[in-house]
Computed example of a mutant assay.
Amino acid sequence: MPLPPIDELLGGAGNLAREKWDLMLPDELLHAGFERRYLDLAGAQRWAAQASTAIGVICTSAEKVTLSLSNKINKLSVVVQE
């Protein structure tokens, strides 16, 4: 699954200015700098793939496991349905 553009992921965030002059940057540069310093989206995607494989190994055939990586709040949610 391709990663969404960083401007789409961080577009609604209001607290990205971390450095002294970040408030002076246009959103495009602020988003790129935040991504470079604080986010590892490719690493998160690899981890989610590995976690889904590990979960698939330990689940019984009666369970359906859905993994979704929320790109707005950067958290992994696991929903197990029987």
Rank of each mutant, 00 (worst) to 15 (best):
L16H: 02
A51D: 05
N74Y: 15
V78T: 05
T66V: 03
Y38L: 06
G33P: 00
L69F: 09
A54C: 05
L29R: 13
P26I: 03
Q50H: 06
D27Q: 14
L16Y: 01
R36H: 09
K75N: 05
K20I: 05
A51S: 05
G43H: 02
V79W: 04
G33T: 00
A32E: 03
V65I: 11
A42M: 06
F34Y: 09
L3G: 04
G14M: 06
M24P: 05
S70I: 10
Y38D: 03
M24S: 04
V80G: 03
R18D: 00
S52R: 13
I73N: 03
A17P: 11
R18M: 10
S68F: 01
I58E: 00
R37Y: 05
R18P: 05
Q45K: 14
S52N: 14
D27C: 07
L3T: 13
E35S: 09
R46T: 12
P2E: 15
P4R: 08
L41K: 04
G56A: 13
K20E: 11
L29Q: 11
W47V: 10
M1Y: 14
Q81N: 13
K20D: 15
L9I: 15
D22P: 03
A48L: 07
L3F: 02
L10N: 02
R37F: 06
Q50E: 12
A49Q: 10
V65P: 07
Q50N: 11
M24C: 09
V57I: 08
W21E: 14
A48V: 15
D27T: 15
V65K: 01
M1Q: 08
